[in-house]
Amino acid sequence: MPKPRVNDSEQDKTARFERIKKAITALEKQLAQISKQGDLAPQGAWVARYQVRQNQKKYWYYKLQASTACLPRATSSKLSKYKHLGKAGTQEHIDAVMSVFRRSVRDEIQKIIDTLDDCLLDISSGSEQEEEDPQD
């Protein structure tokens, strides 16, 4: 099998670099679209279901919950770990669910962009093919 010429490998690198750049551009457009769709939930927040018992009846409610106090309170300037959303299907409940969804999608897209950025570095620095150190 003939050895690839230097020019062929440079063209291959350039083509791969351009494909990765095009993918990053498409993903960045997706990030912009997600931002336009509405608010993002705080990092690490989720929607939790909880039960209240009153007069021998059970009621189910929902809250936006975070591991740290980052949610605004309605009655004071302090931050809270919880935001009451009410019953299933209320506008606040749906908005919170969608904000958590957007945050999750945004985070995953950003991870992919970061990975592709690393690929660009590998291609441009020539570190995708390195000599191994000889083992003793």
Results as ranks from 00 to 15, higher is better:
Y59F: 15
L79A: 10
A88T: 06
S77T: 15
T115E: 13
S67C: 04
L27D: 00
T68S: 13
R73S: 11
K3E: 03
A69L: 02
L27R: 03
D136S: 13
S125P: 00
Q30N: 07
K81L: 04
S35T: 13
E131P: 00
I113F: 09
Y61D: 04
D107H: 11
M98I: 01
A32M: 11
L120T: 05
I34Y: 07
Q51K: 15
E108A: 14
Y50A: 10
Y61S: 06
V52N: 05
R19I: 08
A66H: 15
N55R: 07
A45Y: 09
L71S: 02
D133W: 10
I123L: 15
K58T: 12
V97F: 02
E131H: 09
V105S: 04
R16M: 13
G38T: 07
Q51S: 12
W46V: 11
P2W: 03
K3V: 03
I123H: 03
S99C: 04
A88Y: 10
I34A: 02
I112E: 15
Q51I: 12
W60P: 01
R103E: 12
T14D: 12
V97S: 02
A41Y: 05
T90Q: 08
R106H: 14
I123N: 01
E108N: 14
P2F: 00
A48P: 06
Q33R: 13
V105E: 13
G126L: 03
K36G: 09
T75P: 04
A96I: 06
T90N: 09
A66S: 15
G86P: 01
W60D: 14
K83D: 04
T90Y: 08
K57G: 01
D118V: 02
L40G: 02
A26S: 07
R106W: 12
K63H: 10
D117M: 08
D133L: 13
R49G: 04
A41T: 05
K13F: 06
N7I: 11
D122K: 02
F101Q: 04
V97P: 04
Q30L: 05
N55W: 00
K87S: 11
D122V: 00
S77Q: 14
Q30V: 07
Q54R: 13
D107F: 11
E92S: 11
R73Q: 12
Q11T: 11
G86L: 06
Q33D: 13
Q91A: 15
E131V: 12
R16D: 11
V47K: 02
P2D: 03
H93M: 06
L121H: 06
K83A: 08
R53H: 09
A41S: 14
E132Y: 10
K83L: 10
